[in-house]
């Protein structure tokens, strides 16, 4: 793939998405879009560690929550400016990633053991956050509504959308760069076969630690942005299983270990979820049932996800067309 094509596709997708709020002014739609993009960002983080690095986490909520609470607490308790708070919260997420990564990778945890350990961390964090006054306990923490660009609070939802879109786009550019770097090659080698990678001079522990820190930072930024958008956080939002699941569903449905997978998956899931609610009305859990069906279909018929499906369709289309 040429450099221009590798990065151009991301730029074009971003530009097309940026037009959405101009075409559709419905608050509900833009709201759904913002949420979908927050999930896409969290999913990019999960995809870096699991899709590229083969370390399947079932507890990315630990990082999402670290970013969410970090941002909320820094602003409400310490009066720190929203921008600085979001950046710091992202760094806190990376630090939490480093600790969890060090503890699990040092002791050689892999596969389902690693998944379980991450889940355990997220759950412990949730219970602690729910119980301690410092995090606002069961009542959660509210950020005061003070609309002003200086506070990272905007009257128009479209602004939030454009900002989160810009962040997701930057992360996708970064991921493309990683794919084409030595670190990216080492990360994929670790996923494919750790012993073979080590024999070729790859410091597998170092690679996994860098990956989990970067992954955690992305997901923590998603958490920080979530709080900034809704101005509220509690333990089940921040550390609940919902975000761990959404962060992994997107990439698996969209295309594991691909730059577009998390974005495609997150958008498809949210589009489907909204559609289901619109059609089936108030049937409780109908969107979850649909996610399940979609997941089964993808695993049965399109192992490489929507991204793979689209590539194959494009190839078919080109083959059909007379040259």
């Amino acid at each position: 793939m040429s450099v221009a094509r590798a990065y151009g596709a991301i730029a074009i997708a971003a530009l097309l998405l940026a037009l959405l709020p101009v075409m559709v002014q419905s608050n509900t739609v833009i709201n759904a879009l913002v949420t979908a993009m927050i999930i896409a960002l969290a999913a990019q983080g999960w995809n870096l560690l699991a899709g590229y690095g083969g370390q399947f986490s079932f507890g990315h909520a630990a990082f999402f929550g670290a970013g969410a609470y970090g941002n909320a607490i820094l602003q409400t308790r310490y009066g720190i400016n929203a921008y600085a708070a979001m950046l710091t919260a992202t760094a806190i997420g990376a630090a939490v990633g480093a600790v969890i990564g060090y503890l699990s990778f040092r002791s050689g945890l892999r596969g389902s053991y690693f998944a379980l350990i991450t889940l355990a961390f997220a759950e412990v964090f949730r219970i602690i956050a729910n119980a301690t006054p410092f995090t606002g306990g069961a009542a959660g923490t509210l950020i005061k509504l003070q609309v002003s660009a200086a506070n990272f609070q905007f009257a128009s939802r479209a602004i939030y959308f454009w900002i989160i879109l810009a962040i997701v786009t930057a992360v996708m550019f970064l991921m493309r760069g990683i794919e084409r770097s030595r670190f990216g090659a080492y990360l994929v080698a670790v996923r494919e076969n750790e012993d073979a990678a080590a024999a070729l001079g790859v410091d597998t522990l170092d690679v996994k630690l860098k990956a989990i820190m970067l992954s955690a930072a992305m997901t923590a930024l998603a958490g920080a942005f979530y709080v900034q958008y809704f101005l509220f956080v509690d333990s089940s939002i921040a550390f609940g299983t919902w975000i761990s699941v959404e962060a992994l569903l997107g990439p698996i449905i969209g295309g594991l270990g691909t730059v577009f997978g998390p974005l495609l998956g997150a958008l498809a899931l949210h589009f489907l979820g909204e559609l289901a609610k619109a059609v089936a009305g108030r049937v409780l859990g109908i969107d979850l049932a649909l996610f399940g069906i979609l997941l089964v279909l993808i695993i049965a018929f399109a192992r490489d996800g929507l991204q793979g499906l689209l590539t194959r369709l494009a190839r078919l289309w080109r083959a059909r067309r007379p040259a």
Binding site: R180, S181, R182, A185, Y186, V188, A189, R191, E192, N193, D195, A196, A197, A199, L200, G201, V202
Partner: peptide
Amino acid sequence: TFQIVQPFAGLSVRENIAVGAYLHCRRR
């Protein structure tokens, strides 16, 4: 080399070999 071969199964031949080559060069 490993008695039981350990290829990076999901990668191409070129990408497999490149992982080794990266030990002494940074550029892709």
